[in-house]
Design a protein around this nucleic acid. Structure first.
Length: 487
RNA sequence: GGCGCCGUGGCCAAGUGGUAAGGCAGAGGACUGCAAAUCCUUUAUCCCCGGUUCGAAUCCGGGCGGCGCCUCCA
């Protein structure tokens, strides 16, 4: 069973065969950091993370690069408005973005290149394209890529662009293109560009790079001429990625990307997310509303990346319960009575689950199917454990290993634990209360015992009486409980 | 207008020819001092019509409904 991925270019599933055995070079189109990233962005980025994790889990030596776009119309516009440079203007958004990524449990990338750091390489790249006849300098000082010079243009989108009429909707005065399909590699500096310190010297005068150029140059510089995977949101297929292919292959003469993966756009409450519809949601907003990161991660990863996914508050509640079931299961495994006992069959269940999980993930990252395998383990093991007073320690260990193994890919427990950690003073207070309640129960003073339970419940702490004593857990983000410990 | 996707139980969502995963929610039951957790039982003519096939949620045609891209929005 080997990994198969759906390649946008061929519109078919094909075996993942990296350029170099055992190595995976991945480039992910990250956000433009002119504002806080929204929940839709994170569907895409969380999928990137699943790819990243699954490949590492599968034993690949992964190099994962995600760019942060800091030079484009929006960052420049924002910088001008704020009276600062693009570097200053974008810095906090970049930092906030990385913080959000961390909150949602995304593995760090090996590199987060920004356009402002690659100006020299971009200029060199354009020089190269001009030299080999794929680009030309227009009268206005802009450099355009000549689409006519690249016959394979349009293959990603699956369209024949040669039929497009020149000049149809291209503004007559602003551009000096030879062909309507041509796109800018380098743009002459406008006043705003200078103001935002987003203009650099070049052989064609002051100017700045075009958006498509940034990604090509950064990916080629960071990862080499041929990438194994290039990831992005579906909106980037055309023209962004189409243009990247053209300019990259025209420059290197080599295949640019072996597999293109594109994530379907998220919907919010049944509609496309947009500012005008007023359904624009950021991660930090959701956290303020009291939702926790694990719920968000769960919901965004719960559907296959090429399927519609409708993000809703109700769905978040459902995800919260689903994650809680996992957390409960994990803590049960920690406390389960072990002993010699006869073989329980748990090891077979663990192995079967892992095989099913792997098959699902290998099938173009089918996270929904993979989660079914995961929850199947929970169901089967819970039932088995209920039926036996004790099971061999190794059997339980096999389940624990399977669970943590799958979570290395899904990251659900990981995020749940990170966001629900409890500080020591609260913990010792809870332990003290539990002891007091135990004493009350011993006296059969259930009214007192229930009062203590209520006291804890009010702070989001739930007690579970079991054979081995009373265990407790915090429901919801740690914020709800932290600082709640009375003196 | 051009290109494309989707329509599965109350909600979410897998399944692309062999007879419906999983999550959430609901109902009943077991366990519990009460709970929580867990288990058991229970809820689907797979949008409609026609066709292909021994057999279709899965393939083809038509219809209805929803959505996306075509704008430097992931």
């Amino acid at each position: 069973m080997a990994l198969k991925v759906f390649n946008t270019e061929t519109r078919a599933l094909s075996p993942f065969e990296p350029l170099e055995d055992g190595k995976a070079r991945i480039y992910a189109c990250g956000p433009t950091i002119y504002d806080h990233a929204h929940i839709g962005n994170f569907r895409t980025f969380l999928f990137f993370d699943v790819v990243h994790r699954h490949l590492e889990w599968s034993g690949y030596n992964v190099r994962f690069v995600m760019n942060l776009t800091d030079v484009d119309d929006k960052t420049i516009g924002g910088a001008v408005k704020a009276g600062s440079s693009v570097a200053e203007f974008t810095r906090p958004f970049g930092e906030a973005f990385l913080a959000d990524c961390n909150t949602l449990g995304m593995l760090p990338a090996d590199s987060y290149p920004r356009a402002t750091q690659y100006i020299t390489q971009m200029v060199d790249f354009v020089v190269r394209l001009i030299a080999n006849g794929h680009a030309y300098v227009a009268d206005d000082g802009a450099v355009y890529f000549s689409v006519a010079s690249f016959p394979r243009y349009g293959r990603l989108k699956g369209i024949d662009t040669s039929t497009l009429k020149v000049g149809a909707r291209v503004s007559q005065d602003e551009y000096e293109k030879e062909d309507a399909r041509d796109f800018a590699l380098w743009k002459p500096a406008a006043e705003a560009d200078e103001k935002a310190m987003a203009a650099w010297d070049s052989p064609w005068g002051r100017g700045r790079p075009g958006w498509h150029l940034e990604c090509s140059v950064m990916s080629l510089t960071e990862l080499g001429d041929t990438l194994d995977l290039h990831l992005g949101g579906e909106d980037l297929v055309f023209p962004h990625h189409e243009n990247e292919i053209a300019q990259s292959e025209a420059a290197t003469g080599k295949l640019f990307v072996r597999n293109w993966l594109h994530v379907k756009h998220l919907q919010v409450e049944g509609r496309k997310m947009s500012k005008s519809l007023g359904n624009f949601v950021t991660v930090r907003q959701l956290l303020e509303e009291g939702y926790d990161p694990a719920s968000i991660r769960h919901q965004l990863v719960s559907a296959h990346y090429r399927s519609d996914l409708n993000f809703t508050r109700d769905g978040l509640d459902a995800s919260r319960s689903a994650v809680q079931r996992l957390v409960n299961f994990e803590s049960r495994l920690e406390a389960v009575p072990v002993g010699d006992g006869e073989p329980s069959g748990l090891r077979d269940v663990s192995a079967e689950t892992l095989a099913a999980f792997r098959a699902a993930m290998d099938n173009d990252f089918n996270t929904a199917d993979a989660m079914a395998a995961l929850f199947g383990l929970v169901n089967r093991v819970n039932a088995l454990l209920d039926a036996r007073p004790r099971v061999p320690a190794e059997d339980v260990a096999s389940v624990r290993d399977a669970l943590s193994s799958m979570d290395r890919v899904l990251g659900l427990l990981e995020v749940a634990k990170a966001s629900r950690s409890v500080d020591a003073s609260l913990a010792s207070w809870v332990e003290e209360r539990i002891q007091a309640r135990a004493d009350a129960r011993k006296r059969k003073d259930f009214a007192a015992a229930d009062a203590i339970r209520g006291e804890l419940t009010a702070r989001g702490i739930v007690l579970e009486d079991g054979a081995g004593g009373t265990r407790w857990k915090v429901l919801g983000p740690a914020a709800a409980a932290s600082g709640a410990a009375p003196k």
